[in-house]
Amino acid sequence: MDKSIPLTEALFYILLAVRKPNHGYGIIQEVLEMTAGRLNLGPGTLYGAINSMLEKGWIRLYSEDKESRKKKEYLITDQGEGIFYNEVKRLGELVENAKKMELRKVGV
């Protein structure tokens, strides 16, 4: 697994929204809240992202009750958390470096 590929914004926020079991509509709502309404995930984008992450093993199906037509819930896996952790570390480094640049600019 190549861990150096940056996550798309959609994948990043979906991973953040499935740290506890969450279903499709719940993920859309939570991402909307986290970004103060900026990122409104399209259902097609979400569907594709969930399926590709299920395939890669970054998330797993948490529950599927066919009898009561309960909504499918998804949960992050250890592998997913590893990917997410590495990405946060990479993004942190980006921000750190950007801050250094800004400080120098102010200092001039």
Partner: peptide, 15 residues
Amino acid sequence: GPLEMYTDSESKIAQ
């Protein structure tokens, strides 16, 4: 609300 199935360029390109 609005209906947009694909909201980023990655998923639009995939479509």
